[in-house]
C-alpha cells in the first residue's frame, strides 16, 4: 500500500510541484494520473521511488517511511519498484536479453558484476519476462533493430525481471503510435491483473486512461482535484482537471506534449 500524507514538494527554485497530496493506493490497483503538463504528475510518480525527494509530509510504501531511507536502503527499496519511461531508456547497442539482465545486476557478486556473466537461472528468468510481454523471439536481437513498441516491451520485461510489487510508468505510450500504444497498454493491464502488481501511470491520453485504469487521479497545479473510479469521470470533472482545455487536449495530445517539452 502506498500512502501520501500531506505531501509537499517545492523545487529549489521555489516552484511548488505538489501540495497537500493525500492518497491511499492499495496493492494491485491500476491508477492513471492525469493532468496538464507541468501539473506535477511526473513529480508525484517519481516521489514514490525517491527519484525525487519530498519537502513536506509523509510518504509510506508498505510501512516503509520513504523519506527516512538512506543510501543503500534507497537502492534496496527501489529493487521492489519497477519504472517505465517515455523514452524506453535502454542500451540500444546491446541485445534485448542483456538489457533485461541489467535488473539483476545489483544482486550479483563482484566478479560477476565485472565480467557481466550471469547465472543460468537469471537468464531463464529474463527469458520468462520477455515471454510474458510476447517478444521472446527477439531475445538475442540488438535493441536498435526493434520498433518503438517492441522497445517499450523490453523495458517492461526488464521491470518484470525485477519481480516488483509496484510498477511506476512515466508517460509510457507518449512516443508510440496508437496501435502499439494499445498493445503496450494491454501488457500493462495483463501484468496488473495476473500478477497483482500495482501500476501507477502518468498519461496524456485521457481516453486510454479511462479505458484501462481502475482509478483516476486528476492533478491541477500540484493538487489532487479528483480521485475516484474511472467510470465516475465525467466531462465536467475533466474540464476541472484540465482547466477548460479539454477540447484542445483530447484532439491532439501528442502535439500538446510536443509544445510543452
Amino acid at each position: 500500500m502506498i500512502q501520501f500524507i500531506d505531501v509537499q514538494k517545492t523545487y529549489p527554485n521555489g516552484t511548488i510541484a505538489l501540495q497537500n497530496v493525500n492518497l491511499n493506493i492499495e496493492q494491485g490497483e491500476f491508477v492513471a494520473v492525469i493532468g496538464l503538463s507541468g501539473a506535477g504528475k511526473s513529480t508525484l510518480i517519481r516521489c514514490i521511488n525517491r527519484m525525487h525527494d519530498i519537502t513536506g509530509g509523509r510518504l509510506i510504501v508498505d510501512d516503509v517511511e520513504v523519506t527516512r531511507l538512506r543510501g543503500k536502503q534507497i537502492r534496496r527499496f527501489r529493487r521492489r519498484i519497477g519504472m517505465i519511461f517515455q523514452s524506453f531508456n535502454l542500451v540500444t547497442r546491446t541485445t534485448v536479453i542483456k538489457n533485461v539482465l541489467v535488473s539483476f545486476v545489483p544482486d550479483l557478486p563482484l566478479w560477476r558484476k565485472l565480467t557481466g556473466l550471469f547465472t543460468k537461472e537469471q537468464k531463464i528468468k529474463a527469458l520468462e519476462a520477455l515471454d510474458k510481454v510476447g517478444i521472446l523471439d527477439k531475445a538475442y536481437v540488438r535493441v536498435d533493430q526493434l520498433s518503438g513498441g517492441q522497445q517499450q516491451r523490453v523495458a517492461l520485461a526488464r521491470t518484470l525481471a525485477q519481480n516488483p510489487d509496484i510498477i511506476l510508468a512515466d508517460e509510457p505510450i507518449a512516443s508510440l503510435d496508437p496501435v502499439t500504444s494499445r498493445m503496450v497498454m494491454n501488457d500493462f493491464k495483463r501484468i496488473n491483473q495476473e500478477m497483482n502488481i500495482s501500476v501507477i501511470m502518468n498519461i496524456h491520453h485521457v481516453e486510454v486512461a479511462l479505458e484501462y485504469a481502475d482509478r483516476i487521479i486528476g492533478i491541477r497545479k500540484g493538487e489532487v482535484v479528483f480521485d475516484g473510479e474511472s467510470r465516475r469521470v465525467t466531462k465536467e470533472i475533466l474540464e476541472d482537471i484540465y482547466g477548460g482545455n479539454i477540447e484542445a487536449l483530447a484532439s491532439s495530445p501528442e502535439e500538446k506534449l510536443a509544445h510543452v517539452r
Binding site: 543460468k120 537468464k123 531463464i124 527469458l127 520468462e128 515471454d131 521472446l136 531475445a139
Partner: peptide, 14 residues
C-alpha cells in the same frame, strides 16, 4: 538450448 519452465525452448547463440 535453454528450456523455460513454460516449456518453450530458446536457442542461445554461443
Amino acid at each position: 538450448k535453454v528450456l523455460l519452465p513454460s516449456g518453450k525452448v530458446v536457442a542461445e547463440k554461443r
